[in-house]
């Protein structure tokens, strides 16, 4: 239950960051909130008090526009103070709309799509070549998969059989202009690139727990997390307009009320 509660708090924080002058990418932050929370609270081997501890698992947010969700999770693990979130995208803040530097808990700045999987593959190769047993997790958007460089990385990781590399696709089905098209058959495509592909409900924490607790070995693994853009806030669920929103006080109240109505008992 604690992870469920943590995911709820992450969503609350995302909405709060959405009230800033520039809003935030609400839809894609809420769609990956459950996966992110589970990873940081139950899956990743981390030492928040020593963020660059060599034995840590690496997490790379390739879909950098979900920065609000990441910051919300980093607060959950104590990498960031809750109070700092109020500076999100404000003048002088280090909390940018896309992670702009290596904050504690942030391995690489991101935002330009199509970089994270290659970075992760390089890190995974380096870890393997030096005999370290850390794993590398990369969270991608489904629209991001339209970037050709993702498939350069997928081909490379498959060829190298980097089984310490785990990609997670936040399959929320929407990009700015509408439905994310052109990706099917998605799992089969990853398999032909030499990956294990596992599909899961990206909002079912028990199912996610079971997938990440027993990842197949011998090849890199992609977890296709089927999610809903804007998940948890009925106002935004499945709506392409939730991509980037600035929440007025009134909209914020409605969003929070909606979030409360979907709160797990």
């Amino acid at each position: 239950m604690s992870t469920e509660a943590a995911a709820y708090r992450v969503r609350e924080r995302v909405l709060k960051m959405g009230t800033g002058a520039h809003g935030t990418h609400i839809g894609g932050s809420l769609s990956c909130a459950d996966v992110l929370t589970l990873l940081f609270t139950e899956v990743l081997r981390l030492r928040p008090e020593d963020p660059r501890w060599d034995g840590r698992d690496r997490f790379i947010l390739s879909k950098g526009h979900a920065s609000a969700a990441l910051y919300g999770v980093l607060v959950e693990r104590g990498y960031l103070a809750e109070t700092e979130l109020a500076t999100y995208t404000r003048k002088g803040s280090r909390l940018a709309g896309h992670p702009l530097r290596r904050l504690p808990g942030v391995e690489f700045p991101s935002g330009s799509l199509g970089h994270g999987l290659s970075l992760g593959a390089g890190v995974a190769l380096g870890l393997r070549r030096t005999g370290r047993d850390s794993r590398v997790f990369v969270l991608l958007g489904d629209g991001e998969l339209q970037e050709g460089s993702v498939w350069e990385a997928a081909m490379f990781a498959g060829t190298q059989r980097l089984d310490n590399l785990v990609a997670i696709v936040d399959r929320n089905g929407l990009q700015i202009t509408g439905p994310t098209t052109g990706l099917e058959p998605l799992a089969e495509r990853w398999r032909t690139f030499g990956w294990h592909a596992v599909e899961v409900d990206g909002h079912d924490l028990a199912a996610l727990r079971s997938v990440f607790g027993d990842l197949p070995t011998g090849k890199p693994v992609v977890v296709i997390a089927n999610t809903v853009k804007g998940k948890g806030v009925p106002l935004f669920e499945g709506k392409k307009k939730s991509h980037s929103v600035q929440l007025t006080p009134r909209l914020y109240q409605r969003a929070v009320a909606g979030l409360k109505s979907t709160r797990p008992s």
Partner: peptide, 20 residues
């Protein structure tokens, strides 16, 4: 990495981050 220059650069960055 094969004929994949974008991947070449980011993989190199990743390797550097592990100490190479």
């Amino acid at each position: 990495v094969g004929i994949a220059e974008a991947n070449l650069m980011s993989v190199s960055a990743g390797l550097a981050d592990t100490g190479f």
